[in-house]
């Protein structure tokens, strides 16, 4: 139970979002640094890495395994040296990154990039030293980016394989579907902050306990999880999607050929699925729907082709049911 634990923190540093947020970046960082110090304080051997997600790029801000070289020559007698090093390294790197004149503040921040870097870092440490219970904490202020769905899902699967717990906190803005799913699928905790005045207390009670302690002292869990997925064709978040029965790719409308695995679907299935779609969606998307490209085939060949199945994803209920079973 009393093992050292590793924490990688992914910070969303999107300037545009922080500008809108009622909590200033400065006060956020001040509380975050105390939280990071608390993690280091828990145990002498606890390790920490901090990654920053900036518009269009992600950087490693601090890693306890690679302490920054430019340490101040004289240390402060009133401060524990590792805290001092961590705090000055993180603040210096963040201001250095944000003052970059080439930074395009409107581009959404590269959370997935930072998440992937964090996973790679954990993988490297696990191979070298054998980490126990590594964790990633994502603190985000940006809304979901629907074209990040596939990379996020891939990161979640690698996290599951590495046995990494992903915790997520949405500090500003609407609930994010993807981070909720990331936390749920890796056994982590998701927190949507509506009240930013006691951020530090939220961080400490929700994200500080390592997984072994969570068996004794509980952390907030989600009672409602938004399981909606983004379609592969238009990157929209869909309530009802159509799933390729071969490769499980998700589409917002029936397609004759799966764009991922190139499976062709019989025309009859397409017609049936189109007929069964809710009227509002089908009429709205009618014009945008690509026309079937495949030429009519003989019945004999068509029978070999697997039918496409419609997947209904119920929002919030926590279950996803495939309406039509696959046909082969």
């Amino acid at each position: 139970m009393d093992n050292s634990s590793h924490l990688s923190v992914v910070l969303d540093l999107s300037p545009a979002q922080w500008y809108q947020s009622p909590l200033s970046l400065d006060s956020f960082l001040a509380q975050l640094l105390v939280f990071l110090n608390a993690h280091i304080a828990l145990k002498h051997d606890n390790s920490l890495a901090v990654f920053g997600a900036l518009p269009d790029k992600s950087v490693m801000l601090y890693a306890s395994s690679e302490p920054p070289m430019d340490t101040p020559a004289t240390s402060d007698p009133n401060c524990y040296p590792p805290f001092k090093r961590l705090d000055s390294a993180v603040t210096a790197r963040i201001s250095e990154q944000l003052e970059d004149p080439l930074l395009d503040v409107t581009t959404p921040s590269a959370i997935v990039g930072a998440l992937t870097k964090a996973l790679c870092y954990i993988n490297r440490l696990s191979v070298a030293t054998g980490l126990v219970d590594p964790r990633i904490l994502i603190l985000s202020v940006s809304p979901d980016l629907s074209n990040a769905y596939i990379p996020i899902m891939n990161s979640i699967f690698s996290a599951q394989k590495l046995k990494v717990t992903i915790d997520a906190g949405q500090i500003y803005g609407p609930d994010t579907v993807f981070l909720q799913q990331a936390a749920h699928l890796t056994g982590g905790s998701y927190l949507h902050l509506t009240e930013t005045s006691a951020l530090l207390q939220y961080l400490i009670m929700t994200f500080l306990p390592p997984p072994s302690i969570r068996k004794v002292i509980a952390v907030p869990t989600q009672d409602k999880i938004d399981f909606r997925a983004a379609c592969f064709c238009h990157k929209n978040i869909v309530d009802i999607g159509f799933v390729c029965s071969v490769c499980l790719s998700i589409f917002c409308q029936p397609t004759p050929v799966c764009s991922t695995c190139r499976t062709k679907f019989p025309i009859k299935t397409l017609q049936r699925l189109n007929a069964s779609r809710p009227l509002t969606i089908s009429s709205a998307n009618n014009s945008a729907r690509p026309t079937p490209v495949s030429t009519p085939r003989s019945a004999a060949t068509a029978a070999r082709h697997p039918p496409m199945s419609a997947e209904s994803i119920q929002n919030g209920s926590g279950t996803s049911a495939v309406a039509n079973g696959s046909g082969h």
Partner: peptide, 26 residues
């Protein structure tokens, strides 16, 4: 002395440490 608190804190059990942390900023 802050250093004594930190060192003593590290000698405690994990659950005890989390309880202290949870109550620290109240």
């Amino acid at each position: 002395r802050p250093s004594s608190c930190l060192s003593l804190f590290r000698l405690l059990e994990p659950v005890e440490r989390q309880i202290i942390m949870s109550l620290l900023w109240l």
